[in-house]
Design a binder for these strands. Structure first.
Length: 877
RNA sequence: GGACAAUUAGCUCAGUUGGUUAGAGCGCUGCAUUCACAUUGCAGAGGUCACAGGUUCGAGUCCUGUAUUGUCCACCA
């Protein structure tokens, strides 16, 4: 048997163990399927869900378990959000150990616009821009760059121990994935769910593309509010430069001040000569804001666009996709928006058309969340996906419980959002994305009609005949393709049966911040493609990981935690434990170095427990079925059984924090502090090993490295822990031996406490309990006492039921106030219990077990009181 | 404007369907230690569970309201 080092050094084990897991094929479902038959080896308590006796109850044998990993950005670095994949790994490892055919399918994301921004920055370093290339060339370069980088993030994910099947790795731009996306697009189109249309969109002049509302972040900022004269009116605007695109004036229909203008046309002096605008009434206008008069610019304001639709207004675009003013703006054409605004304001002032300005107007302005450029609302032609029909089954699936969201409160958030969802702009003008597979037949007037869904010009020609064709240059919104991720991956793993075995997937685990962007849409498109199969049965949403003080991490605050710093210092298991214990689904959690350090200590404790036990074993030892001999044996077996069933149930119900906490207490407090200490008197090797193995199994899903490292030192185990069984869940009742040890614990605790407070050295102990006398040596060791003698009457200083410390009057007097305080407390408590039991409603309506417990507690309390009374009475004599 | 969280010990957080003396880690105080682990052991101090009502035999847990903090959505001429 190899010696274990004095402390657990994660770096000495992690990479080696991970390589060994991967090499053994443990991550592959076909590699762990065989485990469903056959029993565990050695003395461990292995159970598989299909084992006949006492296995985890499942309806009909093993149920396949699958998770498709939310693909991290292939160009990115690991952050704490990725570290939360620990949740997925816990589930996957648990199910794998249970013997369920288990697949965790990993992937990486090309992250369209995000990567484009980064890659353009790279090009800029060489003094180049994307315009030095054709879109196709740029796509290729960015693709190579991305694929060249992805080993980095994969290595980082592996370093955290994530047991995904890397042989099935998918990338969002894999050709087969793209084919699947095209297929979905064509089906949607043929179903009439896709249309092209000129509508107002969020345009990013920097990225030169439109974006969905959800990709826009609003910031509050101060801008001047200009009050401009428009004929008989003065109206307020922050965007005077768009005045050339005005096609109406609006007031509230009930606004008495302006009744007479409704339906009329006004004529006003402008900077480009006089102009005429009709006056419309629309309830959108707030009569209390400004002058209650609004200029309507349908081409550059979403609300004005809506008004334009209601009143059939003309749309005049004064700002182009380059962010500069168009020819409609006359002499201002070609100016940037900012320059044009300054020029227009100056000219309005000079012309006497500026009534006044409010320089302290605060409002919120949209910025593109990826590049930080201010958004321009513009009218452009885009591809739209109708959502009215798509969202119905997606809402129903959650309402009917076919998809469960953890935590459940997000079900309302989910349905509310979907119910208010409007048609989805799925086209983008960025270059690094999946091209929309369309060829247009160009008309004589260059109009793009008709079009065919195809990637091949030849096919388009075959369909429409000879002529001039042009390929669509727009790309898909990355969320459109990634919303097909669960099936687009599983259909294309190279293992034809994967889809059948593992779809619907079991769990989608992701950050609650992308519930809207991604999760809702995966459900919509998943149910569209496979109407009878939800893409995943459970959605588990984690919250944000914040810094040590619970503050959101941000670069500007400088409080960003790099999880790899912690794993380098304390090991991956420590980080995983820190992200599991004390963190609850959907809620933000705080991560501090002190916390990670604490769990490093825990791993070391586990290591040393193993080191100690293995050091006790005789040469050539091999474990046998453990026999329960001492009270401590009965007690630890009970604790192990209880913890096993608790941890199992907690994992099944996604309460990982509680699972971890219970395992933590089991190891450190129950097993190390009590059982091992007790075992030093009379070691039960088989039970020590049984306990150690059980604990290793229970902790393995959360802390895979240290548990596997220890397991590898068990010479009788020839199978890796990762594929060994999950402990048997068996209900035990507390037998005599276990309760006896409880009494011993109580006595030891009380003696320790009194000894510490009164600074007693090896006090002699008197007990009326002959069983405790049998455990004299143990009590002497644990509580550091002197002689323990039997005395039916008891005498000295009372410590716990049946136990006294031999004491002189001086010591008893020193404890007098303690005894009195205790007595008062107990009396108060007794009164409470009596009152409860005297209440007929309580006795009638509370469950019998609860009432019985109250009665028992009352009896105990009475007994304690009488002991205390005796003690105090003795003092008075 | 709407919605959703959170508010529990000095700090960071747990606390499954209500069950009655509220927990952990860190920090703090004291003590211990050749005998697995100082990344240790033992003991201790520390909380009217934000506030006000209510339901109930019983409320940290359920309901209503208030306050504070945070997040999301919508809107802002």
């Amino acid at each position: 048997m190899k010696e274990l080092s004095k402390a657990y050094i994660p770096a000495d084990h992690e990479a080696k163990i991970y390589a060994q897991w991967e090499k053994s094929g443990a991550f592959k479902p076909d590699g762990n399927l065989h485990l469903r038959t056959g029993d565990a080896t050695g003395g461990g308590p292995a159970a598989r869900s299909d084992s006949e006796d006492g296995g985890v109850p499942t309806a009909a044998g093993p149920v396949p378990f699958s998770i498709v990993m939310p693909p991290p950005n292939a160009n990115g670095n690991l952050h704490t959000g990725h570290a939360m994949f620990t949740v997925e790994d816990i589930l996957v490892r648990y199910h794998r150990m249970k013997g369920d055919p288990t697949l965790w399918l990993p992937g990486t994301d090309h992250a369209g616009i995000e990567t484009q921004v980064v890659f353009e920055r790279e090009l800029a370093k060489e003094g180049k821009s994307r315009f030095d290339y054709s879109p196709a060339e740029f796509y290729q370069l960015a693709l190579e760059y991305t694929k060249g980088n992805q080993h980095n993030i994969i290595a980082q994910l592996k370093s955290l121990g994530f047991s995904a099947d890397w042989s099935r790795l998918k990338f969002t731009l894999d050709e087969d994935v793209i084919e699947t996306v095209y297929d979905t697009f064509k089906r949607l189109h043929d179903d009439g769910q896709i249309y092209r249309g000129n509508r107002i969109v969020n345009w990013c002049p920097h990225c030169n593309s439109s974006f969905a509302d959800i990709e826009i972040k609003y910031r509050e900022q101060l801008d001047p509010l200009y009050f401009i004269k428009y004929g008989p009116f003065v109206l307020a605007t922050v965007r005077p430069e768009t005045k050339f695109g005005d096609t109406a004036i609006a007031v509230h229909p009930d606004d008495e001040r302006y009744q007479r203008f409704l339906g009329t046309e006004i004529e006003a002096d402008g900077l480009l000569g006089t102009f005429k605008l009709s006056v419309i009434g629309d309830t959108y206008v707030n009569p209390d804001f400004g002058t209650g008069v609004v200029k309507v610019t349908p081409a550059h304001d979403p609300n004005d666009w809506e008004m334009g639709l209601r009143h059939n207004l003309e749309v005049k675009s004064v700002i182009g996709t380059d962010g500069k003013l168009t020819s409609i703006a006359g002499k201002y054409a070609g100016m940037s928006v900012a320059d044009a605004r300054d020029a227009v304001v100056a000219d309005l002032e000079a012309a006497g058309l500026m009534d006044h300005m409010d320089m302290n107007y605060s409002h919120s302005v949209g910025y593109h969340d990826r590049c930080g450029t201010q958004i321009e609302p513009l009218v452009t032609e885009q591809w739209w996906l109708k959502v009215a029909e798509l969202k119905k089954p997606a809402i129903k699936a959650v309402k009917d419980g076919d998809i469960k969201i953890v935590p459940a409160r997000f079900e309302k958030v989910y349905t509310d959002w979907l119910e208010n969802l409007r048609d989805w702009n799925i086209s983008r003008q960025n270059w690094f994305g999946i091209k929309i597979p369309v060829f247009y037949r160009l008309g004589d007037d260059e109009s793009k009609q008709p079009y065919l869904i195809t990637t091949s010009e030849a096919e388009a020609k075959k369909y429409y005949g000879e002529g001039n064709y042009e390929a669509e240059t727009d790309t898909f919104d990355t969320w459109f393709s990634s919303s097909q991720w669960p099936f687009a991956t599983l259909m294309n793993t190279g293992h034809p049966s994967d889809f059948e075995h593992f779809y619907p997937t079991s769990v989608m685990e992701t950050g609650r911040d992308i519930l809207f962007q991604w999760v809702t849409r995966m459900v919509m498109l998943g149910l569209y493609r496979f109407p009878d199969k939800v893409p995943f049965q459970t959605i588990y949403l984690h919250g944000l990981v914040n810094d040590a003080h619970g503050k959101k991490m941000s670069k500007s605050k400088g409080n960003v935690i790099n999880p790899l710093d912690f794993t380098a210092k304390y090991g991956s298991d420590a980080l995983r434990l820190a992200l599991t214990i004390g963190i609850t689904p959907g809620n933000d959690g705080a991560l501090s170095e002190a916390k990670v350090e604490g769990y490093r200590n825990f791993c070391n404790k586990l290591w040393n427990v193993a080191r100690f036990i293995l050091g006790q074993l005789p040469d050539g030892y091999s474990p046998a079925e453990p026999e329960l001999i001492s009270p401590a044996d009965h007690w630890i077996k009970f604790q192990l059984d209880e913890a096993t069933s608790f941890v199992t149930e907690a994992i099944e119900s996604y309460r990982f924090s509680e699972a971890g906490q219970v395992a933590y207490v089991l190891l450190w407090s129950d097993f190390a502090d009590w059982y091992i200490e007790a075992s030093k008197i009379s070691p039960n090797h088989d039970l020590l090993i049984y306990g150690l193995e059980t604990i290793l199994r229970l902790l393995h899903p959360i802390a895979p490295f240290v548990t596997e490292a220890i397991w590898s030192h068990l010479p009788w185990q020839d199978e890796q822990l990762i594929v060994s069984g999950w402990p048997n869940v068996s209900r035990t009742t507390k037998a005599g031996g276990a309760s006896q040890f409880d009494r011993l614990i109580e006595a030891v605790n009380a003696i320790r406490s009194i000894s510490a407070e009164e600074q007693l050295a090896k006090p002699a102990i008197i007990t009326d309990n002959s069983e405790l006398v049998k455990s004299s040596e143990l009590i002497q060791r644990l509580a550091r006492t002197g002689e323990i003698s039997l005395n039916e009457q008891g005498s000295g200083l009372y410590v716990s039921p049946g136990v006294w410390i031999e004491a002189d009057t001086e010591l008893i007097n020193a404890r007098k106030h303690h005894l009195e305080t205790q007595r008062a407390e107990k009396q108060k408590f007794l009164a409470n219990l009596d009152g409860r039991l005297a209440n007929s409603k309580y006795v009638e309506s509370a469950p019998e077990a609860v009432v019985q417990e109250t009665r028992d507690t009352r009896d105990e309390t009475l007994m304690l009181l009488s002991k205390l009374d005796e003690q105090l009475k003795a003092l008075q004599q």
